[in-house]
Design a protein around this nucleic acid. Structure first.
Lengths: 356, 356
DNA sequence: CTTTAGCACTCGGGGAAAACGAGTGCTAAC
DNA sequence: GTTAGCACTCGTTTTCCCCGAGTGCTAAAG
C-alpha cells in the first residue's frame, strides 16, 4: 500500500493534460465541481467512462481533488500550478481592453500617492478582484538640495529636492523674526551639511552646527531640518494601499461574511506581509504557496513596474485559488506596462550628482 | 376607522418614554426584536401585560414596529428620531477613549490628504462603522505667489504658494535650454499676471502674454502655468475617502453579501451624494431621512471641523439604523474636536494679503 | 491493453412537514 | 389601571426523505 504521498511514476499523457485543462477552466468559470460527462462533451470522441478512469489517475497524481465521493472534481493547488506553468495559454489583450487600460491611466501626474491609489482602484475595477499597490526604492532617500524663500518677516517657504528628484515644500511659520539677509547663509549651510545624508543623520548633524550660528537662525534651521527629515522619512516609507476589497463579495467563495471579513482585514491591515515579486515582471502564488496563513486559501498575482531609475512599483491582485489566471495575468501585465510607460514619460530621466 | 396616518392625539406619558428607551437600547445592543417580558424585567414594578398595552400604543403612534404578529417590537425611524432628540443621554467619553483618540491623532502634519485618510481609518476602527472623510473650502483656490528655482540648464523647480497658504512644488524638465538670467523676469510675470485668479483664467491669460515674450521662455511659462492650474484644480476638488467598509460585515444586518456589497459600492463610488452637515457641528440622519436611496435603510452621523480659516473638514459614520447613536455621537465629536485642535495647532493662523 | 456500456451505490442539496417557542392580543378578575 | 391566564400566531429550527448528479467497478467489446 503506497498511499503515502503522490505517485510520481504515473505519466501525464497528452490527454490527461487536456482533461486537466478543461476541468480547471470549467471550474474557474462556474465554481462548481466538474463531472466526467461535461468533460466528455467538451472533449468529444471519448466517453465519460474513459474520462472517469483518467480523472481517477489525476486525483492520484494530486492534480485534482474531489470534495466528496459522488461529486465532480476540482483542481488542487498543484493542479493550478501545472496549469499556470504549462497549460494556460497566454492571453492577448483585446483592443477594447488595451483601450480601457490606457483610458484609466490618463492621470495627471500630480502626487505620486494619489496616482498610485487611483491606479489601484482602476485595476481593481477592471480585473474584478481586490488589489494592493505600493512603491519602494532601493536606496534610502536623502535631500539633494534646499532652498528658502522669504514670504514675510515671520514666514518663509522651505523647498527641498530629494534624491529621487521629487520636490517637497512647505510654508514655515517662524517663532522669531529673522533677518532676510541671513537666509542665503542658511541655504548654503543646508546645502553643504544636510544633503545626501539620511534623515537620522540630519537630526544629529543639527547638533554639530548649533553653536556655529546665531540662535534665532538656528531655530529656523532646526524647523527646516525637522520638516525635511520628516518629509524624507515619510516619502521613503513604503505604504501599501488596497482597493476593491468589495469585489470579494461577488465571489461565491466569499459570500460568507466571516471569510470575507477575515481576508479584507488582512488586506487592509497588513502593511507588510503581502507578497512581492522577487524579480521578473510577474509572479503567481497559488494557495498554500503563500507564506501568510491568511492567504493559504487564496491566490495572488503580483506584477512590478519601474518608476524613475531607483524606484519600483508593485501591483498585486488577490482572489480565490479559483482565479482566472489567464485573464488576470494578461490584464495585470497590461497595466504594469502602462504604469511603466506613464512614469517613464514624465519622470526624471537624467541624473548627474554623485553621492557622498 | 381612522387607521390613516399616525395618531397624534395619544399622549406620550413618562412611562411610555421609559419603555421606548429600553426597547431602543436593547435593540441597538442585540439586533433582535424586544419582547414585553424583557422590558418588564428591566423596568421592574410593572408586569409584562401592562407593558404589552403600552407597546400597542407605541406602535400605533408610529414609534415602534413589529416585524410580524408574534415577534417583539423594533424601533421605527421615527422612534429613533425621538430617542436621539430627547431620550438619549449624552455620553461622556471615558479617559481611555479620550486617550485613544489623542493617540490616533498623533500624526505628522505632512500632506493633508494623507492625514485625512489616516484619521479616517482611525475613526473607523475606533467606532466600528465605516466612515467617510472629506475637506472642502468655500473660496476657490488660486495661486498667491510663484517662484522658479534653477537646477541646471534643462530643469528648474516651480514653487507655488496657494491662497490657503499651502505650498506645492515640482521639478520641471525643460524642452529647451533657457537662459537662467531670464528666470526672474518670468517670476515677475507670473506674480503679476497669474496670481489670485482661477485655474481656468490662468490658462486663458496664458494666451494673452504669448506674444510678449520670447518663444523658449513661453514654453517654460506654459509648463509652469499648466502645472499650477492642475495642482490648484486638484487641490480644490473635494475628494472623499472612505475607510473601514469591512466593519459592515460584522453587523448582522449586513451578513448578506449582496446588501453589504451594495452599500460598500455606494460608499466607495459615490463621490458626491454623501450627507454633509448644513451647519452646526454634528448632524444625525436616520434611515429615510437620507436623500440617497442607497442610504434609506442606514443612518449617518456626520461631524465637521475647521481647517485654517477657510476650509472645513468632515467626518461621517455610516451604519444601520440600529446604530449606537450615543456612543457614536460622543466619539465622533471627540474626534472632530481633536481634528480641530490638530489643525489649529500647526496650520496657518494669520493672513494678510488682499485679493484682487 | 484500452475503451465503453451498464449498474449499483454514495452523498450532498433541496423541500416539505413537524416540532418548537417566544411573543402577542384578548378577556376577565383584581 | 393593572395583572394573571390562555389560546393563538408565526418565524425559526429540526427532521426526514427524496432526488439526481456523479462515481467506481465490472464485464464485454474493440
Amino acid at each position: 500500500m503506497n498511499d503515502t504521498g503522490q505517485e510520481l511514476d504515473m505519466e501525464l499523457t497528452d490527454r490527461k493534460k487536456k482533461i486537466l485543462k478543461v476541468v480547471i477552466e470549467d471550474y474557474i468559470r462556474t465554481a462548481e465541481p466538474v463531472g466526467s460527462k461535461a468533460i466528455a462533451a467538451q472533449l468529444g470522441k471519448v466517453s465519460s467512462a474513459t474520462i472517469r478512469n483518467e480523472l481517477a489517475d489525476l486525483v492520484e497524481m494530486g492534480l485534482l481533488e474531489q470534495p466528496h465521493t459522488s461529486a465532480g472534481r476540482i483542481p488542487s493547488p498543484k493542479g493550478y500550478r501545472l496549469y499556470v506553468n504549462e497549460l494556460m495559454e497566454r492571453q492577448r489583450l483585446s483592443l477594447d481592453e488595451t483601450e480601457r487600460i490606457n483610458q484609466s491611466l490618463q492621470l495627471k501626474m500630480e502626487e505620486l500617492d494619489r496616482v498610485i491609489s487611483q491606479a489601484g482602484r482602476a485595476v481593481s475595477s477592471f480585473i474584478n478582484y481586490p488589489t494592493y499597490m505600493s512603491i519602494s526604492g532601493k536606496k534610502t532617500l536623502s535631500a539633494r538640495r534646499f532652498d528658502l524663500l522669504p514670504v514675510d518677516e515671520r514666514s518663509c517657504i522651505v523647498v527641498m529636492m530629494m534624491s529621487d528628484n521629487r520636490v517637497k515644500s512647505q510654508l514655515l511659520r517662524l517663532q522669531l523674526r529673522v533677518d532676510l539677509d541671513q537666509l542665503p547663509t542658511l541655504v548654503t549651510l543646508l546645502n553643504t551639511h544636510f544633503v545626501n545624508i539620511s534623515p537620522d543623520e540630519m537630526n544629529l548633524r543639527l547638533m554639530d552646527v548649533a553653536e556655529q550660528i546665531p540662535p534665532q537662525l538656528f531655530l529656523l534651521l532646526s524647523q527646516t531640518v525637522s520638516y525635511a527629515s520628516d518629509a524624507l522619512a515619510e516619502s521613503s516609507q513604503r505604504e501599501i494601499v488596497t482597493a476593491g476589497a468589495k469585489e470579494l463579495l461577488k465571489l461565491p467563495e466569499y459570500r460568507d461574511a466571516d471569510k470575507a471579513h477575515q481576508l479584507m482585514s488582512f488586506l487592509t491591515d497588513s502593511k507588510e506581509n503581502l507578497p512581492v515579486p522577487d524579480e521578473g515582471p510577474m509572479k503567481i502564488l497559488i494557495g498554500p504557496e503563500n507564506v501568510s496563513d491568511a492567504l493559504k486559501n487564496t491566490s495572488v498575482v503580483v506584477a512590478s513596474y519601474d518608476i524613475g531609475d531607483d524606484m519600483r512599483g508593485l501591483i498585486g491582485v488577490v482572489g480565490p485559488t479559483r482565479m482566472d489566471y489567464a485573464t488576470v495575468a494578461a490584464r495585470l501585465s497590461g497595466f504594469a506596462e502602462g504604469m511603466t510607460r506613464l512614469f517613464g514619460k514624465q519622470e526624471l530621466p537624467p541624473k548627474e550628482e554623485a553621492e557622498k
